[in-house]
Design a protein around this nucleic acid. Structure first.
Lengths: 331, 331
DNA sequence: ATATCAATTGGAACCGGTTCCGAAGGAGAG
DNA sequence: CTCTCCTTCGGAACCGGTTCCAATTGATAT
């Protein structure tokens, strides 16, 4: 591998001159051309370590994700990748594999690699997260969750819940089950439910019951089992698409036709929701755009430009076949 | 940030001694303890750039993937991550975003970062891939595709096809459509089909027709449309789960009941295939294990240990509801 | 007591860049 | 013609580690 000294020698100049050429310092037209030619000829590429060693930082943005096998995560990553690539930053992905301790570990780990910014996709932000970010003195942007002390790019979960509430009311549903998740997850467990509750607020002649499930399919199926034994609503509004898929599966197994016997909705806009039959009514989130925006914001932070604390992305209802229109029967 | 000199001064030794302590050289018990205490106290961590600069390599394994939003890819990555983490290697993921030029670019790019090994998930291996790997002098392991000049970890696509063929014959199907993909993709386009063909070989009273589709859902739906207008088989064997999902969707839209009106199968063992209704008969591939093995192999290569050129993983049929059993009717 | 040897340690060079500083040379002003 | 000033360039220090080599020390063998 060629070094800057080889180039300098071949060009008959000092290595500081080559360095200056590379970094846009003042170099005469003549030497500029000479160096350029020689660099091409040897196809020389500067050693990134030597550069980073002196500079004490890199152009790497570290991204910690809870897991890799999730539609939301991979879409978001693609958005991040798009933006970073255009802006000449490197993306370093690190999976915490659903383990919060590892999330914290990875923050320190990435800091060791002198990443210049951190993007964090996490379900919860704890004191330990904050401590790690503070200690590492690394600019950070959260995606998907909001926190008063951190910059973030979030989806408008409250409105998503609200719109979903209005949507199913429009469709004539009045016996409603809401299958949510733990309130430890602010975005999914609290905001969506609050928006939903608000939409139904003051609606008389409307019965709503709230249930809770885990995030995984099999937990959702078990929860659906319990729910449907407890009560028979006309619709189950699920806090995520995965939960909705679990409910649908349970309904199929119980020979309950969807949507005529039971309507189901989700949140997320996952690809599969369109593929399955009947297609699932859900809320589309703009993951990819969120990733892009987060990448933009972290770059701004790295360059010490001002960035608003929370960037909120809108989302939209996608009405599909999994919700029956009861309007006719009710009137 | 503390440097090795701070530690050396605080411990009253030379920095070479501290370095020796860190790298397991000969250090007396006494100084060992002293240095250990001081390192903990300052919580010092060596600068990775300075280390890599001298060592001229890293403990990073670069992985190039064609895209991030694929079940197979994310599962494989998780397997790679598991193994690398255990073995103290770092994983650097790079997405080529379905663009082959970018695959090549990324090889050079990763080489610049002095990765010590390369894992490559790609649909095709061209001369340019080989050239890049050769030029960068980086050990590489391919995943999912085989090539005579490169180490690889592959799934046994031929047998997968063969077993699928036998399976549907067992179920009594004799009017069979095979919906494949381009033969540029050796594993998916050629191997699966060959195994399948072999299974049906010599079976009299059996009509098989071969069709081709793209990899994406909407291409699959269009292909299914043409196929079903052309001919009405009892089963469509699809080269991937995604294509199978497209066929199922088309069947639903055409009001053809599955499996009583048409059976469908896929390859891949994607999660969704179990969730949908009816659940899809498919072949389960061990992506995660493939990732792990590839990681193991690349580490061996990095350490100049011998590794067999091709590691082949078995896969298994998962018979589910999307295939009707015609056996009774035929007898 | 002295020669031999292994274990331990410090000093210096090195990895491949960046950056500061001062010198050289040419152009324009007085 | 001389004095500034600006542009261009080389030299040297530095970033934070690793590693080679030589020196020191203490123990063992002779």
């Amino acid at each position: 591998m060629k070094t800057i000294i080889d180039i300098a020698r071949a060009a008959g100049v000092a290595k500081s001159t080559v360095s200056r050429y590379l970094n846009g310092g003042s170099v005469s037209e003549e030497t500029r051309e000479k160096i350029e030619r020689i660099i091409k000829q040897h196809n020389y590429v500067p050693n990134t370590f030597a550069q980073s060693l002196k500079a004490k930082k890199t152009s790497i943005i570290g991204t910690i994700v809870p897991r890799l096998d999730s539609f939301a995560v991979s879409q978001t990553l693609m958005g991040i990748d798009d933006e970073l690539r255009e802006r000449q930053y490197q993306l370093l992905i690190s999976s915490a594999n659903q383990d919060m301790n590892r999330e914290i570990e990875e923050i320190y780990n990435l800091a060791r690699q002198k990443i210049s910014g951190l993007l964090l996709l996490a379900a919860q932000i704890t004191e330990r997260h904050l401590k790690a970010i503070r200690e590492c003195k690394v600019p950070a942007v959260m995606i998907g969750q909001q926190h008063s002390l951190l910059h973030s790019v979030v989806h408008d979960d409250y409105h998503a819940g609200y719109r979903m509430g209005k949507h199913i009311l429009d469709k004539g549903h009045r016996r409603i089950a809401y299958l949510g998740v733990t309130e430890q997850d602010i975005a999914v467990g609290v905001k969506r439910k609050e928006g939903f509750r608000k939409a139904l607020d003051g609606y008389t002649g409307c019965e709503v019951r709230y249930y809770e499930s885990g995030f995984r399919m099999n937990e959702a199926m078990a929860a659906a089992e319990r729910l449907l034994e407890d009560w028979m609503p006309t619709i189950v509004v699920c806090a995520t698409d995965n939960i909705a898929l679990g409910v649908m599966k349970t309904a199929f197994l119980k020979q309950i036709p969807i949507p005529s016997g039971l309507s189901v909705t989700g949140f997320g806009g996952y690809d599969v929701t369109e593929i399955i039959h009947p297609a699932l009514t859900t809320v589309r989130y703009h993951y990819r755009r969120a990733g892009r925006l987060a990448a933009e914001n972290i770059i701004s932070l790295v360059n010490r430009e001002p960035v608003e604390m929370a960037t909120v992305l809108d989302c939209e209802i996608i009405g599909r076949e999994s919700v029956d229109n009861l309007q006719g029967r009710i009137i």
